[in-house]
């Protein structure tokens, strides 16, 4: 069973998305801000991280940069979730080191496809996608 870390500050969205992921059979870890997300990524080593971008304390871009800068967490795929559905945001997220990108409101089937694609990706040494 894959473990997904969901970093999201909005309670309703966190609750909703985590319940939907649980139903789909994932184990879900929750973090409410970028700082907590970083700590949990290190202590829990999840299989994948869903990262909201506009987060308090440490924002999603910075958190991703730090994750990708550490050897221990570098290999964990990160999917950026943002309410800014602009192509510029996609670029911004990818250049911060995110492996993929999806817009909120989440379309679950589409997000699940992306999650599965990243989980199935071979894990061995692969640097951050530029």
């Amino acid at each position: 069973m894959s473990r997904i870390l969901l970093v999201e500050d909005n309670e309703a969205n966190r609750d909703m998305l985590s319940r939907r992921l649980l139903r789909k059979g994932y184990e879900v870890l929750l973090a409410m801000d970028g700082g907590e997300g970083l700590a949990m990524a290190q202590s829990q080593s999840p299989d994948l991280i869903l990262m909201d971008m506009s987060l308090p304390v440490v924002d999603g871009w910075e958190a991703t940069r730090r994750l990708k800068a550490q050897a221990q967490t570098r290999e964990i795929p990160v999917i950026a979730l943002t309410a800014h559905a602009m192509s510029g945001d996609r670029q911004k997220a990818l250049s911060a080191g995110c492996d993929d990108f999806d817009t909120k409101p989440v379309e679950l089937p589409r997000l699940l496809t992306k999650i599965e694609a990243l989980l199935q990706r071979p894990r061995p040494a692969q640097g951050p996608v530029p």
Binding site: N10, A12, M16, K104, L108
Partner: peptide, 20 residues
């Protein structure tokens, strides 16, 4: 529009869940 989207996210998401 950013602020409007966040609650909308919940509305759409929960209605999808309930629909399921």
């Amino acid at each position: 529009s950013h602020e409007l989207r966040t609650p909308l996210n919940a509305i759409i998401g929960y209605s999808e869940m309930l629909e399921e």
